[in-house]
Amino acid sequence: MAKEWPIVNRYRVGDPVTVRAHFPSGHARAPFYTRGHSGEVVRVTGPFRNAEERAYGRTGARVPLYRVQIRQRDLWPDYVGSSGDTLVVDLYEHWLEPGDRR
């Protein structure tokens, strides 16, 4: 078996990130409603085998998985609830771009 290279995480807890506004036609793990929205990394996990490759029978590259917290009012302009309400979603690194510091 080939040697597995160590995985370097591109983001750390607290980093602002934006979910890529990318719309592939096949199997994707970033929910549509999160794409293009910005949040903050709250937990770094993995690496895991990329499920978007495994879905097509490939082994899948090892990728970091981030728990990204997004404010509900940033997701939905008409959100009804508290300003502190949030959503946390698990996203592979390739779905993320650096975001702006608030």
């Binding site: 506004a21 719309f23 036609s25 994707a28 929910p31 549509f32 409603y33 999160t34 794409r35 939905w76």
Partner: peptide, 12 residues
């Protein structure tokens, strides 16, 4: 076009 797939229903 930004196409949402049928199973990807969060927020509908």
């Amino acid at each position: 076009m930004d196409s949402r797939r049928h199973h990807d229903m969060g927020g509908l």
